[in-house]
Structure formats: structure tokens, C-alpha cells
Amino acid sequence: MYEFNFNRPASIADALTAIADADDGQFMAGGQTMIPVLKQRLAMPSDVVELANIDDLKGIAVDGGTVTIGAMTPHSEVHNSLEVADAIPALADLAGMIGDPHVRNRGTIGGSVANNDPAADYPAAVVGLGATVVTDRREIAGDDFFVDLFETALVEGELITAVRFPLPDKAAYMKFPNPASRYAIVGVFVSQSNGDVRVAVTGAGPCVFREVAMETALAADFSADAVAGISVSGDDFNNDIHASAEYRAHLVTVMAKRAVIKAG
């Protein structure tokens, strides 16, 4: 790891100032991806602005129609939250599938979403539920947030403060984990809200995406049979020793089917 200046602001305003003042500053949330990257010397920030002391970024709020999760809320808290489990059980379920228990105790939703790893789980929930990413300066629709491999709509110095999820009528996430890393080889998040259906796929391609043909089919008939016959093109899918693009494409259909069944 290269040496850096470490900054631990107690407010969002101070965090923004710290990042603006740095030559090449980087926010650190839970650090579960960033620290391994730093250890491998794949990044050399001049300043690390760590967000753990900012109370405004923490916590879970459920009101009538939404669940809002502070950016610095760890996965374990979302997973164990009775409120989340009651409002959007699929979200609590998904949080419990990320990494391992220790990673879940440190890793946060804000960090996961900002990093936009192609095999991360949370992006599937953000897109699959039509969530809104709230930053220090604006609100970004989940559909617009994830741009490409490790690339998001965030501009330099922009800080995610929370993610706001609307409550679906039903939803479920099915994950096919990589046997080595346990990241998603394919993860499919399915939701239905007022007749609208979303099918978000992570792991398969360079970035989370919606599977429109499945959404259309499920909108007409929310059943496993409706998606069972839909085969997905693996043309732009990831291809590695664990899964070929073709196999990933196949898994999208299988996981979608199972997610629909799980959603009930």
C-alpha cells in the first residue's frame, strides 16, 4: 500500500471539503473493496476520506412507501433489520448474501453502489426495485446510476448519502455465486409494483442491466413459466474460467425463474 493522508470528517460538509482540498482524494466507506485494491497497489490516492464518523450517512428509515438506507449502513444491519425484512424482505435477503459475515459487518451499501463492481449484489436491488440514489447534491434514478464497468453517474467529489427504495408488492433475489469468490456469477432481482415488473441482472455482464423481455412477459403473467422460455443473449456477457458467457446467459433465465417463484 502506498502511504496517504487519512481524513475522518464528522459531517458531510467536512467530507466534501476534504475531498475538494485533496490532490487526488478518494472516499472510503466500509473499505471492503477499496482496502484490497490499495493493498495491491492498484490505486494511489493522495488522501483517503473515510466516512464512518458521519452520523448523517447511517441508519435505516422506513416510512409509508419507502425504505431509505444511509450510505454507511453495513450489509449486516440491513440483513438483520426487522423493519427492512418487513418492508422489503428481498432486500434484507440480498444483504445477507453479500460476501461473508465479516465483510457484511464492514461493507456498506454506499460503498458497494459507488464501486459498481459487475459482480456486486446491491446494484441488482437498486435497479430491480427502481431505487433512487441520493447524493450530497441530487437524486439519481437507479436506472441512470450504473453506467458501465466500475463506472457510475457520480461526478468527481460527489458523495452518496443514501439509497431510497420504493416498496414493491413482491420481490426476490436469486444469486448464483462464484464457487471461489462467492461474488455473483449471475444474480437476478425481480420485483412487481402496481403491475410494473423489473428484472435486474448483475454478474452476467459488465454492468447491471434490466432484462426487458422478461419484464414484459412477467407484466403479462407473473409466473416462472412466463420467463422459462426466454433465452437471453450472452453476446456481451463476461466469460471466465468459472462461467462462459453462454452459461451465464442460461443462468439468467434459471435465476429469473427461481426469483419469480421465490417472490411468490
Binding site: G31, Q32, K39, V48, A52, R106
Partner: peptide, 12 residues
Amino acid sequence: TSVKSCTMLALQ
């Protein structure tokens, strides 16, 4: 809570 101490800075 359990954490991986290799994935946390001492300053954290």
C-alpha cells in the same frame, strides 16, 4: 462484531 483485520485500517 467480527471483522477481517486485514481489511481495515488501524485508524478506522
